[in-house]
Design a protein around this nucleic acid. Structure first.
Length: 493
RNA sequence: GGUCGCGUGGCCGAGUGGCUAGGCACAGCUCUGCAAAAGCUGCUACUGCGGUUCGAAUCCGCACGCGACCUCCA
């Protein structure tokens, strides 16, 4: 944990709405829970942003030396489509539409989700539990809630008694809601006859005979309520109280508010010490969402085959683009911003490989120690990736200047610079060279190298007409040559 | 309607009561046979109107504009 000396880590706790020093319950262990996807359709770029935010958190905590148990669930049952009482399970609905067994839907979109996570270099969690795999834990939790007096059964379903709970505990603390205001804003209570209050939410739902996904329980055949799985599974793997719970801003209410209420009701203790919420990705100022129809899938992003996309963009470009904005701010997607990110990432990755060629000839560290400290300060200040990236660009300038012989650095400084750069860009930010199938193609590379050789020969005999013709020919195929002291390299336009 | 948040230079986006990120774009210069790449230099912004202060983009109030949540959503 030597890195912890570089300063305390602060993060914004959305429960207190303040930036707080992060002190784990049982150092060096950290318990982290993040709400995962509901696997009934393809993930879109907005989802990716959220998982990316917590990926960086996970990477940073790990880098600081903490032993992180990172739990991110797969929701494979429980979300209703329409109204609270009349709705159909999302996965069951999808299964009906696609004429598949519900678990086929679950598997299909879970696989897709994992593919996307890999594409964006988002690390897998330590545990990835599913709701259907934890029915017993959920049923037990419902029992505890009933026993504590905050749950009641009605016609085979079990509801959480919000008004009663709020008489004893602070319901609405996380999202800043007041129960009387919530009641005043309640819409029509049609079809909610079973519930004592419109604010109550289902923790167990009775399944009608044709329902596809259902399990036996003390209250009859049914399925767990939507908020329950996170509470049950976080308790199982991280304990009744754990360090950090993350999720998208849009889950704050009611999902996370309900989680708190359930845990307090069942176990008598607040489940989470630090709540973290990532902000939304927007398109033309509007939240990217399935329901808005303004989302696109990673595949469309890569191919550029979508009306919002002027061209295709690599996964690493997107990752870099997102990291240039603080996680708590909204980020607007635009082609101009993506193209700027593409250029910036290229420059940074180029510096990373230039680093290998540098030689230490100086007598001091050229400011590397100070640069390192600024990078750590930025990350320790609520994961301020945009500021750290700004510092890294100062590092890029330093690398290039050393390469050009304009600045000298001593061996220790160079070592430190290499370690710093590789660690922060690869391990912490999770950036790597964009996977460009074309440039990885050995045949293509061999062909281009032959052109480069022919051009070098032409240049050697000052036949610039020929050398330029070769270069222009490559350019017309989208291959750009770059002459350096070490020779000529190439890249895709 | 209720709650919360935002409004920064051509674009994207950080940010602290005073010293005023970074990327992209643009312009000039250096290097180079030319170009690209790289380096250097320039471009000095903070919605409007009041107020607090020696001093505010940063604090307070009002106005305007935008968004999120209040129903599933990362």
């Amino acid at each position: 944990m030597s890195d912890l000396r570089k300063g305390p880590f602060h993060l914004t706790n959305t429960l207190t709405r303040r930036k707080e020093e992060f002190i784990p319950l049982r150092p060096p262990h950290v318990g982290l829970y993040v709400c995962g996807p509901t696997v009934y359709s393809d993930v879109h770029l907005g989802n990716v942003r959220s998982f990316l935010t917590f990926d960086v958190l996970y990477r940073w905590l790990t880098h600081l030396g903490y032993k992180v148990r990172y739990v991110r669930n797969i929701t494979d049952v429980g979300h209703l489509v329409d109204d609270i009482d009349e709705g159909e399970d999302k996965i069951a609905k999808r299964a009906r539409l696609e004429r598949l067994e519900p678990m086929e839907i679950v598997q299909k979109y879970t696989n897709g989700f994992h593919d996307v996570m890999r594409l964006f270099n988002i690390l897998p969690p330590s545990i990835e539990p599913t709701a259907t795999g934890h029915l017993i834990e959920q049923i037990e939790m419902v029992k505890r809630i009933i026993d504590s007096g905050f749950g009641y059964e009605a016609n085979g379903s079990v509801y959480f008694d919000v008004p009663r709970f709020s008489e004893h505990h602070a319901y609405g603390e996380l999202s800043g809601r007041r129960i009387d205001e919530l009641l005043a804003n309640t819409r029509d209570t049609e079809g909610m006859a079973e519930k004592r209050s419109p604010l109550d939410f289902a923790i167990w739902k009775k399944a009608d005979p044709i329902h596809l996904m259902k399990w036996p329980s003390p209250w009859g055949e049914g399925f767990p309520g939507w908020h329950l799985e996170c509470s049950a599974m976080s308790t199982k793997y991280l304990g009744r109280t754990f360090d950090i719970h993350g999720g998208g801003m849009d889950l704050k209410f009611p999902h996370h508010e309900c989680e708190i209420a359930q845990s307090v009701a069942a176990d008598g203790i607040a489940p989470v010490r630090y709540w973290m919420h990532g902000n939304m990705l927007t398109v033309n100022g509007r939240k990217m969402a399935k329901s808005e129809g303004n989302g696109f899938t990673p595949e469309e992003l890569l191919t550029g085959n979508h009306k919002l996309l002027e061209k295709g963009y690599g996964a690493m470009t997107v990752r870099f683009f997102m990291l240039q904005c603080h996680y708590a701010s909204t980020l607007d997607f635009s082609n101009a911003a993506m193209q700027a990110a593409e250029k910036g990432l290229e420059r940074m990755m180029a510096a990373l490989s230039t680093l290998d060629k540098l030689r230490a000839t100086g007598s001091d560290d050229a400011g590397v120690a100070a640069l390192e400290q600024r990078c750590y300060d930025a990350m320790n200040d609520d994961l301020n990736t945009p500021v750290m990236i700004a510092e890294l660009f100062e590092g890029v300038r330093l690398v290039n200047s050393i390469h050009d012989g304009k600045i000298a650095i001593d061996p220790n400084g160079l070592d430190r610079l290499r370690t710093l750069f590789r660690t922060l860009t690869n391990d912490v930010l999770g950036l790597r060279q964009e996977q460009r199938p074309d440039t990885d193609d050995r045949t293509l590379d061999a062909m281009v190298q032959e052109f480069i050789r022919m051009r070098a020969e032409a240049k050697a005999r000052k036949d610039f007409a020929t050398s330029d013709r070769l270069r222009d020919q490559l350019a017309s195929w989208g291959i750009i040559l770059k002459d350096t002291k070490e020779g000529t390299s190439w890249e895709r336009a």
